[in-house]
């Protein structure tokens, strides 16, 4: 397995908390690995499981979904629905043999630039030893 592989991560960030939190990381000039490409969505509740499956299918090595902390959702409770959906996906993927480390959910508030940075660092660190994700990746 290629241990030097640079994991490719897609991060679905809610606009109000987690994307703002990643902005905060930027404003604070906190450094983290460039392996993550963010997709800003309105709410973690808008992230369909099919997005995540599709990301793996298109070759993502890891997928992160990040929303507001419980009680902080800009849309009151979108993150609560996300939490349920993602809990099922988090159970299902390893059951099929995908490494559990490849899919992660987090709560990051607009103020938590440091937490966001740490999450990306940890996520990259736990993905690196796994090498490329080929299991669900489309190979034509």
């Amino acid at each position: 397995m290629n241990k030097d592989h640079e994991p490719r991560i897609v991060a679905f960030l809610c606009k109000w908390c987690s994307s703002a939190g990643s902005d905060m990381a930027g404003v604070s000039r906190l450094e983290y690995p460039p392996n993550v490409i963010p997709i800003t969505v309105m709410c973690s509740g808008s992230v369909s499981p099919i997005y995540i499956l599709s990301a793996f299918n298109l070759g993502a090595d890891g997928v992160l979904v990040s929303g507001c902390h419980p009680g902080d959702c800009h849309y009151i409770k979108g993150n609560m629905y996300a939490r349920r959906r993602m809990a099922l996906l988090k159970e299902l993927l390893p059951y099929l043999g995908l490494e559990p480390e490849r899919f992660q959910m987090s709560w990051v508030s607009a103020a938590e630039g440091v937490k966001f940075t740490q999450i990306i660092k940890d996520f990259v660190a736990q993905l690196k030893p796994l090498g490329p994700q080929t299991y669900l990746r489309r190979s034509l």
């Binding site: 419980p70 609560m80 629905y81 993602m86 809990a87 099922l88 992660q104 959910m105 987090s106 709560w107």
Partner: peptide
């Protein structure tokens, strides 16, 4: 339905 509802106490120990 299962995914159109939630409980405040739904598990979240899997979330960072």
């Amino acid at each position: 339905s299962l995914l159109s509802t939630f409980q405040e106490t739904d598990p979240e120990d899997f979330i960072w």
